[in-house]
Design a protein around this nucleic acid. Structure first.
Lengths: 221, 221
DNA sequence: GGCGCTATCGCATAAAGATGTTAGGCTTAT
DNA sequence: ATAAGCCTAACATCTTTATGCGATAGCGCC
C-alpha cells in the first residue's frame, strides 16, 4: 500500500469569472484534467448562486474572480461560504492590492492568485488546496509579510523584560492584582512598572497600551 | 527598448544551512546560475555572522535554515537583519508549524519555503523576491489564511449596533468620556451600554473586552 | 394596547487604575 | 568606583471604571 498524496475523488470545481474568454479557457482546461470536474461556470456571483440549486453535487472548490459586475467577488464571498460551508474559495484577481487581499482573507478565502497565473501552474495550485495548502502569489504574499513584519521603529523595543511581562499581563486582560499574582510581585511593584511603561510608550491607560500594541487590526471587529 | 522584468545585477546570495550536503547542493546549484552569486555559505548562524566581515560585497538575499545548531534561524533573524538592513531573508525549513512561521514573519522574513522545494523552483522563488514578491509554500500560507479567517462563531455577533460603537471605542483605547464625546452621548449612557455589553460577553472590564475581542494574536506586542 | 428590546440619562458607591514621590539592592558598563 | 539602568516596594491622592437601581421614550409586533 502506497502512502502519499492521492486524490481518490476528483475535485468538484465551480468558477465565477465575468470575461467569457477567460472563463471558457479555465473551464475547458480544468475540466479536461483527470483531477477536476467543473460543474458550474458563471459570469457573475448572482448567476453562480442561482445555479447552485440545480446541482446534484456541489462544488468543493470555487475559483472566483474579484472584479465582477454586480456583487464583487469579495462581497459575495461571505454568502458563498454560507451556501457552501464545506467548499474552499480561491480568489483569482488582477488586483493584488493589500486592501483586497486582506479583505478576501478575512472573508475566508483559502488563497489568492494573480489572474496571470498560467493554467498548468493554476492546476498545481488547485491541487495544493486539496492537499491542505493555501496558494498565494508572491506579490500577494508580500502584503502578508509586511503585515507581520515588525514596525521599523517599534516603541516596545525599549521595554525591559520585566516590563514586557507586565504588558503581556495587560494584554491578557488581567487586573494589576492578577498580574502581581502571576508574576509573584506586590501590587505596588506592578504599578511601578506600569508607570515606567506608560512613560516609555507615551500613554496613560491600559486601554491605550492594548490599542497601541496592536494598531487596530484589519479584523472585522 | 524593451520594458520588462530584468535583473541588471546578479543577486548576491548568502546561505545558512547546517547540513553540509544540502548546503553544498544549494550553493553549487545557485552559484552556477547566471542570476546569482553565492558569496557566503555557513553551517551556523554564528559562522555566517562572523564571515560577513570579510566580504567586500554583502549579500542582498540570505537563504536561512531554521533548525540550526546553536542560534536558531529565527533567533538569529533579528541580528541578521540588523547587520544587513538592506538584505532580504528567506527562510527555508522542514518545519511549517504556525508557531515558527509567524515568528519568522514577525522577525521580518520575506518569505518561508519548505526545504523540500526543488532547486529549480527555489531559484524561481528567489527571483520573485528580487521582483518584489514573497514566496511562501502553500502549506505555510495556510497558516496565514487561518490567521485572517473570521472566527466561526463570534460572541460579538449578539451586540446591537450601538453596543458595537461602544466596543469600537474601547478597542481604540478611549476612556468612557472620550467615547461619549465621539458618539455624542452622556457619560452615563456609555456606562449603561457597557454594562449591557459586559453582561452579554460575560466579562467585567475594558481590558477583558479587548483581550476577548482579539484572542491574543501571535504578535509579540 | 401591552410586551420586549433598544437607546438614552441620572445618581450613588465601591473597586480598580493612574500618577507623584521616594528608596534600597543589584547588575553592568565606563 | 561611580554612574546608569533595572527590579523591587511603599504611601498618598485623584481619576476612571464597574455595578446596582431607577427612569423615560421610541419601535416593532401580535
Amino acid at each position: 500500500m502506497v502512502v502519499g498524496p492521492t486524490f481518490a475523488r476528483v475535485i468538484i470545481l465551480g468558477i465565477i469569472e465575468d470575461q467569457a474568454a477567460i472563463r471558457d479557457a479555465l473551464c475547458a482546461y480544468l475540466d479536461a484534467q483527470p483531477d477536476f470536474s467543473c460543474v458550474l461556470c458563471a459570469g457573475s456571483h448572482e448567476e453562480f448562486m442561482a445555479g447552485l440549486a440545480a446541482l446534484e453535487v456541489p462544488p468543493t472548490l470555487v475559483l472566483s474572480d474579484i472584479g465582477l459586475p454586480g456583487r464583487s467577488g469579495i462581497e459575495g464571498l461571505a454568502l458563498l461560504r454560507q451556501a457552501l460551508p464545506a467548499a474552499e474559495v480561491l480568489m483569482l484577481s488582477v488586483y493584488t492590492d493589500a486592501e483586497r487581499v486582506f479583505e478576501a482573507l478575512r472573508q475566508g478565502a483559502i488563497g489568492y492568485l494573480e489572474k496571470t497565473t498560467p493554467l498548468p501552474l493554476l492546476k498545481e495550485h488547485l491541487l495544493q488546496v486539496a492537499a491542505g495548502g493555501s496558494p498565494m502569489s508572491p506579490s500577494v504574499a508580500r502584503h502578508v509579510t509586511r503585515y507581520f513584519a515588525p514596525r521599523p521603529a517599534n516603541p516596545l523595543a525599549s521595554l525591559t523584560p520585566r516590563e514586557h511581562d507586565i504588558v503581556r499581563g495587560i494584554e491578557d486582560g488581567l487586573s494589576y492584582k492578577l498580574i502581581a499574582d502571576r508574576l509573584g510581585l506586590s501590587l505596588d511593584t506592578v504599578r511601578s512598572h506600569i508607570r515606567q511603561v506608560y512613560r516609555k510608550l507615551q500613554v496613560n491607560s491600559k486601554a491605550e497600551i492594548m490599542a497601541k500594541a496592536r494598531p487596530r487590526p484589519l479584523l472585522p471587529w
